[in-house]
Design a protein around this nucleic acid. Structure first.
Lengths: 147, 147
DNA sequence: ATCCCTGCAAACACTTTGCATGAAA
DNA sequence: TTTCATGCAAAGTGTTTGCAGGGAT
């Protein structure tokens, strides 16, 4: 699956006449090695630890390419940073965001997706993407709040 | 309904020991006179046209108070600005956001809300708020894109 | 008389951009 | 050898904060 993504990116890059550079390879590797909602800063720091030469602007620029290439998706959770997550084809999940501890729980619900399609159809709207975020307190923070 | 909101804010202000100032009255008036997703900047400019003395920091600060007071809700549509909309009690709607012309269509769907409750319960999660945004092309932009 | 609120400007955090250099084609 | 990508620093955003003066209680 990782290889697949690399190929996907190479195809995309070739199609757009983009060059294959060491930095892009590195950033892709590190991105693929992450889980859940990395912010640019986080990814940048991880990479810099191993490859000190890299610039944060490059990480910003490259993550946008990944989005264009369909490998990554922007996720904006109320924390003032742009985060990215992996795109897994045919799968979409949404987020429960705990405002107590900032934990993020992912969930999937097909019925909700279908209802969205219906709503869109009713408005003549063509869906490209969507984002459902539920904010509140996770089980642990609820328990902690009670004491 | 507008008066109701003013009273709601006064009650909130009194409860928190906040002062009633000319600026807060003005900002509340202008906010109540707007429709749909004003950004702080937009509101600030409208106010400034009539009350040049006002500072944008005050508008920022005051809108946050409105959120605390339950009169307003933050809406973040991918455009890099914080926007606010009115809270109408017991009513919640979500948004179809057109990436072509930036139009925002509101919709309500009770079934989706219920499904969210179920999901939350399943995870022991206590919902405080949620946000569902569907991005894509509105009917008009779809038609335009075809030509 | 207190202490909150305001306006201004400076500070902020995150992100984007301009430019000279270096690397890929 | 042309052209794209990079790193750096500077410039941008939108938003927040510190502070001295003004206003509400």
């Amino acid at each position: 699956m990782i290889l697949e993504k690399k190929h996907a990116f190479n195809r995309f890059a070739a199609g757009k006449g983009l060059r294959s550079t060491r930095q892009r390879e590195i950033i892709l590797d590190f991105f693929l090695a992450t889980h859940q909602h990395v912010s640019v800063e986080e990814l940048y720091l991880k990479i810099k630890a191993v490859h000190p030469g890299i610039g944060s602007a490059t990480v910003y620029r490259t993550l946008k390419l990944f989005v264009e290439a369909g490998l990554a998706r922007e996720v904006l959770l109320h924390d003032g940073q742009t985060r990215y997550e992996h795109v897994v084809e045919g799968e979409h999940h949404d987020h429960l965001v705990c405002t107590g501890c900032n934990a993020v729980i992912e969930f999937e619900n097909e019925t909700i997706e279908k209802l969205q399609d219906e709503i869109a159809t009713r408005h003549g709207f063509l869906i490209k993407s969507h984002k459902l975020e539920i904010y509140g307190l996770c089980a642990r923070c609820r328990a902690a709040a009670k004491t």
